[in-house]
Design a protein around this nucleic acid. Structure first.
Lengths: 218, 218
DNA sequence: ACTATTTTCAGTACAGCGTACGAGAAAGGG
DNA sequence: CCCTTTCTCGTACGCTGTACTGAAAATAGT
């Protein structure tokens, strides 16, 4: 039954417009009025397609989640997880607002579930139990998000913080910090692959290891 | 020189009030008007003590950062990093808004630098270079933040997502997800210490390992 | 064909936000 | 005593999300 006035737009159109806006001008540019004028509608008309702003963000996240390249599962969890992490990073670099929009967001759609599914498939050979796999996936996703955030932010050193840090170093209260800043300027050697390799290999190997009692002092 | 009308309040008072508000009612309750009435001042008076809202958040973060328990450096990096992570988690559980306020925030004060300094001190025995140490600290902090966020959110399963997930599982398109959900309900076994142990041990051991060429297929 | 029903459209309006501006109040220095 | 300096804070502007409301546009039933 299709009674009533037919919709002039679609939910996909609204979400796509919001994504395009966020890509071009950042999350802050995504306002109902702005999105509405962009698709040539009244601000309030959007509520026909989207229940509220928070849900719009959910939908945006799920939609771009669908753009993630489908990785092929080789059966080697290290290779597969690296591929998945790399795909995630590519996605976040294409949509810089994504890392910032991810926290506090609920699983809204099948695309996010699809991502979860891929991660679980990659982890299948490890023989870990379900909750542990979930935890590992969340951990890896969180790492990628924070890495990309740093990656996108680090370009702006901000002058003001430089003063704070040099002052702090000069005060002598932070010897290790001074040493760390002086030590290595190895530039782009801190590549994504290097660190992602650490975290993935390290994490999964630790998780697989059958608990060698507990060697901490407690 | 102390000419002019003396301030009726202090920056610390403003920041403390904002923190108290955030602790009690969440970050959203922290508005200039609200903070102002709370300390018995006009909204615009706050601008005497704080340049703008973003800086107020910076100051809040740095202030609670000062509450972090000073860990004692034993010289065993695993023990020390675990203690540091645990201290961070304690802090974030005491101030649930902190994980949400952390991203996109600049290093504002000496307390944050102090935290950095502690992490570097803990990592000193590893002999890693400065940038790598920094990276590891950021990674661990990011992990703690996302873990605590999950910890605070997971209490609310939200009914709506349950429907989405059961539908998805019923559709048969997500076999691994179905299996993972069915597998283990081991409850609180996914403790912070267990996972923090993985990430710290795994990460640092990987970082220390002198690069066994590269065993991926590429 | 006309009416009733249902759905979408979008203008107006409201409370709340951060904050720019500017006039008044309160202090010390000459 | 006045002048300079500093802090105080009411008013106001533009912006936000969105509740409400009535008009518009389609179909379903008679």
């Amino acid at each position: 039954m299709t009674r009533g006035r037919p919709p002039a737009h679609t939910r996909e159109q609204v979400v796509d417009t919001a994504i395009r806006l966020a890509d071009a001008e950042g999350l802050a540019a995504v306002t109902f009025r702005r999105v509405a004028t962009e698709i040539g509608a009244g601000a309030m008309s959007l509520y026909t397609y989207v229940p509220d702003k928070d849900r719009l963000l959910d939908l945006m996240v799920d939609r771009v989640g669908g753009e993630t390249a489908q990785i092929k599962i080789t059966g080697d969890w290290r290779t597969d997880l690296m591929a998945l992490a790399a795909a995630q990073r590519t996605l976040m670099l294409a949509h810089p607002w994504l890392p910032g929009a991810l926290p506090n967001r609920r699983l809204t759609g099948r695309n996010m579930l699809g991502y979860l599914e891929q991660g679980l498939a990659a982890l299948a050979p490890t023989g870990l139990d379900g909750p542990t796999k979930m935890e590992l996936i969340a951990l890896i996703t969180g790492f990628v998000a924070s890495y990309v955030t740093n990656e996108l932010t680090a370009a702006t050193p901000a002058a003001e913080q430089v003063a704070l840090i040099t002052d702090a170093v000069a005060s002598g209260d932070f010897p290790h910090l001074a040493a760390a800043l002086g030590s290595g300027a190895q530039g782009t050697e801190t590549s994504f692959e290097r660190i992602a390799g650490w975290i993935i290999t390290g994490l999964v190997e630790q998780a697989i290891r059958p608990r060698p009692s507990d060697r901490s002092s407690s």
